[in-house]
Computed example of a mutant assay.
Amino acid sequence: MLPPQACKKMQSWIRSRHLICAGNFLVLETLGYSTVERFSDCVSSLGGALINVDPIDKIWMGNHRQVILYRAKASLNTPQQHALKQYWIKYGSLYTRFDERSIY
């Protein structure tokens, strides 16, 4: 994946509150493992590395179906003036859409 495409994809995850920045780390929470694989491609094309992927919870979808919530952590050197960091400051959130603390 080319870096401009990777930045666009990460910006869409920031707007949808799937991706948050914490220092030089990026945290993505999603229900699909294919999204984790795309996130890994985006991070590697921008010069970062995927640290780990953890299944953190099971979420009910309807009455009879549970899906796994994955949390992927990546390291990406984003100084304060980096375009992705500035985008997160403007449009991002401190909590992901699946975080229980964001409900309150």
Rank of each mutant, 00 (worst) to 15 (best):
Y95K: 08
Y33T: 11
T78G: 02
G32K: 14
N63W: 11
A72D: 08
Q80W: 10
A49C: 04
Q86S: 03
K73H: 08
S93E: 10
N77I: 07
E37A: 13
S45A: 10
F39G: 04
G47T: 03
G47F: 03
T96S: 10
D54N: 12
D41P: 00
L46T: 00
Y33D: 11
L94A: 08
L46Y: 01
L69K: 11
H82P: 00
N24R: 13
N24S: 12
K58P: 02
T78P: 01
Q80H: 13
H64K: 12
T78S: 03
G48F: 06
P79C: 05
S34A: 15
D54L: 13
L26H: 01
L28V: 06
F39M: 01
S44K: 14
V36M: 10
F25R: 14
I20Q: 00
L84R: 04
N63H: 12
T35D: 15
C21D: 03
N52L: 06
V27Q: 09
I89P: 00
D57M: 06
N52S: 13
E37T: 12
R65P: 02
Y91T: 05
N24E: 15
V36D: 04
G23D: 13
M61G: 05
R38Q: 14
D41S: 10
G23E: 10
I51C: 04
I20S: 01
N63I: 13
W88T: 04
K85N: 00
Y95W: 07
N77L: 12
S40Y: 00
A22V: 12
L84P: 08
R38W: 12
R71K: 15
P55T: 07
Y91R: 06
Q80P: 13
V53M: 06
H82D: 14
Q80C: 10
C21Q: 11
R38C: 10
G48N: 05
G48A: 08
Y91S: 03
I59F: 06
G48V: 05
T35E: 15
N63D: 15
K90G: 01
S93F: 02
K90S: 09
W60H: 11
L31F: 11
N63P: 12
I68T: 15
A74C: 02
Y87K: 00
I59D: 11
G47N: 06
Q66R: 15
L69F: 07
R71N: 09
V43Y: 00
N63C: 12
Q86R: 08
H64M: 14
